[in-house]
Structures are given as structure tokens and as C-alpha cells.
């Protein structure tokens, strides 16, 4: 491997200021005495500058601002949902407990109401499960028609 090859390997690091002081010094000394490496350095530097000057793509539309603005309200919504779900579960548990300890109903009445309640709940869970599976495995959900 010639000295030029060794320098070329590190030339990008040199231009980007990512070398140690000692490495930079070595490259600098070589470049000062080597016309080819000097030429390459100039070319790479101008390439770098050209890319830096490419105008940034900007989306001035309100939608992008909305995404950032929405972050806070999304977080509030997440909290709100958590509270609603927690409250519903607790309320359901409490009603079931009240229902079990209620002595004013006969066993037959309790059996009737529980089958209705449990049946309804199972139906709800099965539909929810199907929907969730469909949502997760839908291969075409990203296709815009």
C-alpha cells in the first residue's frame, strides 16, 4: 500500500474533522507534498460544499405543524383512555360483586341474569378478537387505492 493509498483512506475523515490531531497532521504533511492527493482533496471538498448547498425540503403546510402540536393532545388522549378503561373494569367488578352478594334475588334469577351477562361479554370478546386479528394481519392496509 502506497502512502497515497493510506492517506486516501482517511481523507474523508480529515475533511470532516473526525481524525485525531496526530492523524490530521500526517495527512496535512503528505497533502502539501503530493499533487494528486491535493487535487483529490479539492474535489471532495467542493463535492461536500455542493451537497451542503442543496436547498432543504420543507413542508410549510399546516399538517406537519399539526403533527408536532398534536403530540401533547395525543398524550392526554392516551391518559384519558387509560382512565376510562380502568374505571369501566372497576365498575364492572364492583357490579358483579354486588350481584353475587345480593340476597333479594332467587338462584334462578341470578342464573338467568348471569348467563345473559356472560353470553353478551363472550360475544363482545370474540368480535373484538376477530377485529384485532384482521387489523394486525391485513396485508393490504398500506395500499392506497
Amino acid at each position: 500500500m502506497t502512502q497515497c493509498d493510506k492517506v486516501e483512506e482517511k481523507l474523508s475523515g480529515y475533511l470532516d474533522g473526525e481524525l485525531t490531531q496526530q492523524q490530521s497532521q500526517q495527512i496535512r504533511v503528505h497533502i502539501e507534498s503530493c499533487e494528486d492527493c491535493q487535487q483529490l482533496q479539492t474535489e471532495l471538498l467542493s463535492l461536500k460544499k455542493d451537497i451542503q448547498q442543496i436547498p432543504k425540503i420543507r413542508d410549510e403546510d399546516a399538517e406537519l405543524k399539526k403533527i408536532v402540536g398534536d403530540l401533547a393532545s395525543n398524550q392526554i388522549q392516551q391518559w384519558a383512555w387509560t382512565l376510562v378503561i380502568l374505571g369501566s373494569v372497576m365498575m364492572m367488578g364492583y357490579s358483579i360483586y354486588e350481584f353475587i352478594i345480593d340476597n333479594s334475588m332467587s338462584s334462578f334469577e341470578k342464573f338467568m341474569f348471569s348467563s345473559l351477562g356472560i353470553g353478551g361479554l363472550l360475544l363482545f370478546i370474540s368480535v373484538l378478537r376477530q377485529r384485532l386479528i384482521a387489523l394486525k394481519t391485513d396485508k393490504y392496509k398500506d395500499i392506497n387505492l
Binding site: R58, D59, L64, D70, L71, N144
Partner: peptide, 25 residues
């Protein structure tokens, strides 16, 4: 905005980029 320009370079379509950014945010 910076992330928008990177995602745009990858996807090339505004709606997709906004989608991705929403998700990432």
C-alpha cells in the same frame, strides 16, 4: 422538518412521509 426531508428522500411521497412522522412522533 429535518426528519421530513430525510423521510421524503426515502419515500418520495408526502402522504407517506406524514404518516411515518406521525408514527415516529
Amino acid at each position: 422538518q429535518d426528519a421530513y426531508s430525510m423521510a421524503y428522500q426515502l419515500l418520495g411521497k408526502r402522504e407517506d412521509v406524514l404518516d411515518v412522522l406521525q408514527d415516529a412522533a
